[in-house]
């Protein structure tokens, strides 16, 4: 099945003062999908996004947006895309409506077009009631909605969202997800960065896992999970010196795919849990190896992340939350 390509990124690289922020990235974004760039802070996803929206020039490679080069055709690209920066890219003294009026002029809308589109957008993001209050009185969720309305003002073919739910409460987060899905329904291609695994998992049609400026994995969240192969059994072992012994015993059991030692015990990938689990417990009993905790789950996106980057995205989470 071949799908229309909205964005073509080819061997993209960006170096800042000898630091390679983005290193030889290549991927395609299909028209009409929600595409996520997932990675910890500093992974290079925001740099990639900024190149795509023409704010940064790549040092090597190229990005083509709807057939237009991000550098040579920057002005034409800007006319066809919408951008929602990270939260707070808002003038606290202007009202919500004034933000949209300002952008309407910057996108060169005629006064007639502006006066029909602005009320529509305010309605869409449910900000009609607060439209004439200064943005400094808005809650985090309301600011985010205003951001999205601003991004949608040019009636874009592609919308870029930078960390759309960073720092939002759960309710607002779910509302924003609904809005993003609604955009896909309207035929808008959405490209977003996130460092939330659940967001990438539930919202994105396809994701690129980025770490150290490189793509580590690319595909639909489910494909990536299935690609890991097998469900995961995690054991927490009471006596840590027994871990190696247990690992050696478990390796040769039936229905076992792979065994890795963790600081607290073992992670075991299994083909069929109903065969593997009793065998594992049996082996632990034989070795009188006491188990503190047993966890069994289908592969999750964090397992995908760990498998491809060798670390957990959560290691970076506290940094991401810092103001």
């Amino acid at each position: 099945m071949s799908r229309a390509v909205a964005i073509e990124v080819s061997h993209l690289g960006k170096t800042y003062e000898k630091v390679r922020a983005v290193d030889d990235l290549s991927f395609q974004v299909y028209a009409g999908e929600i595409f996520g760039l997932l990675g910890p802070n500093g992974a290079g996803k925001s740099t990639t996004l900024r190149i795509l929206i023409t704010l940064l020039h790549p040092t090597s490679g190229s990005a083509t947006i709807l057939g237009m080069n991000s550098v040579k055709d920057a002005d034409r690209v800007r006319k066809t895309i919408g951008y929602v920066p990270q939260e707070r890219a808002i003038d606290r003294f202007l009202t919500g409506r004034e933000h949209l009026e300002l952008l309407a002029d910057l996108y060169h809308l005629s006064p007639e077009d502006a006066s029909t589109r602005i009320p529509q957008l305010l309605k869409l993001v449910e900000l009609e009631q607060q439209a004439d209050r200064p943005a400094k009185t808005y809650s985090g969720g309301m600011k985010r909605k205003l951001d999205i309305a601003c991004g949608l003002l040019p009636d874009p073919k592609i919308l870029f969202l930078d960390e759309p739910t960073l720092g939002l409460d759960v309710q607002s987060r779910l509302r924003i997800w609904d809005h993003v899905r609604a955009m896909r329904e309207r035929g808008i291609t959405v490209v977003m960065t996130t460092n939330y695994l659940d967001e990438a998992d539930q919202l994105c049609d396809r994701i690129a896992i980025i770490d150290g400026g490189r793509i580590k994995a690319l595909g639909a969240p489910n494909e990536l999970k299935v690609g890991l192969g097998g469900d995961l059994v995690s054991l927490t072992v009471r006596e840590h010196d027994r871990v190696e012994l247990l690992a050696a015993a478990v390796k040769n059991l039936p229905a076992i795919r792979a065994v890795t030692t963790t600081p607290t015990g073992l992670d075991i990938r299994v083909d069929s849990p109903e065969k593997a689990l009793p065998a594992i417990l049996d082996a632990a009993n034989r070795l009188t190896c006491q188990l503190e905790f047993i966890d069994y789950h289908r592969p999750r996106l964090d397992d995908v992340f760990i498998a491809h980057t060798g670390r957990s995205i959560k290691d970076d989470q506290p940094k991401a939350e810092a103001p």
Binding site: R50, L55, R78, K79, A89, Y107
Partner: peptide, 13 residues
């Protein structure tokens, strides 16, 4: 600093 400039610069001005 707050990203508003980036928003302005992403428009075709």
């Amino acid at each position: 600093e707050n990203g508003f400039l980036e928003r302005l610069m992403s428009t075709p001005i």
